[in-house]
Structures are given as structure tokens and as C-alpha cells.
Amino acid sequence: MKLKGYQVELRQVSEIDIEMLRKWRNDPEVSQFMLDRKPISREQQSAWYKKIQRDPGQIHFVISYRDQPIGAANLKARGLGKTLDTANAIEPGLYIADKRYRNNILAFAPTLLLNDYCFNTLGTARLLAVVKASNVAALNYNQKLGYKVENEGDLLEISLTHNNYLSATKQLRSLLSR
């Protein structure tokens, strides 16, 4: 499965990607803000890949820009037994591994593509995310997408409705889809 737009392409992860993803994920600069920061072994990565292949509640992508892989993204259904098609809420995730684009406006492109897919194709009612309160960059990033904080604490729960998303990202979507 592929999603294309806003200058980037999201291609569903295949077996040839998993070692590249493991190296990215084990880079401290990438893992520092993740909830689970433990290094991942080849065996764990292989087991993870087998698991996601048969799980209709999640999908994982490699992000490409100008035909080069620059990061990874995923969608996970919220709720026991829910699939991406049936979930009322979905949790998107993303990291940009290529330093050149980590703090660039391009870092919004894969998220816009994922959000459009969730709201327009899957019919998701809302998107959810959990962000470490110390991760100010991620919080700012999500607030620029229209996310609102729902629960305060060391871990912040934030959520996004379709209307909030559309109004917060009108200019961003326009700039990235000329």
C-alpha cells in the first residue's frame, strides 16, 4: 500500500526495510523521545515485523522524499479488538531519521498525508497521541496540526478532530501541495 502527496510518499514497510528501520530506531537521537527507549535486536525486529503483518489494527510505512527514505510512520487503532477500519480513534506515529529534514517544514508532510487518509478514507472520528511533557518540540508540532491537550501529566494525551485539523493546517497543506 502506498500514499502519495505533499511531496512525500508513504510505502508500507516490507521485509527489506526492517534492518534500516532498526538502525534508525536505535539511534539515540531518534529514540530519545520514545516511550520505550530500549535498543532493539535483530530478533526482536524480525518478530515485530511478523506481528505487524498479521495485525489489522496497525500499519507501518517508510517515508520517502525525492525517492530517498527519510523516516518512518505508522497508524494504530485505539480500542480492544479494533482494526484501522473500525476504530473510532487512531494513533499516528512518526519520526524523521534524516537530520536534514528533522526540523524542516517537510516534517509535516507525512503527517498531513496520514491524517488525510485517516479522516477521509478510514472515516476516523479523531486522532490521538501521547507525548512526553518534556518533549516540547513534539507538543508544538502537534499543536500546529490542531491537536488539543486532553489530559495533563508527565505524559500528555492530545487529540485531533477533523475540523480542528482542517482549520489549523490550511496554509501548511497549501504550501506543501503546490
Binding site: Q7, N104, I105, L106, L175, L176, S177, R178
Partner: peptide, 12 residues
């Protein structure tokens, strides 16, 4: 002028 999206991204 109207910048291309690639130029907007590259303007670092």
C-alpha cells in the same frame, strides 16, 4: 513571485 514547494522546503 510564487515559490515551488521544493524551494519552500529547501529554503533553510
Amino acid at each position: 513571485i510564487m515559490l515551488d514547494t521544493d524551494d519552500i522546503i529547501d529554503m533553510s
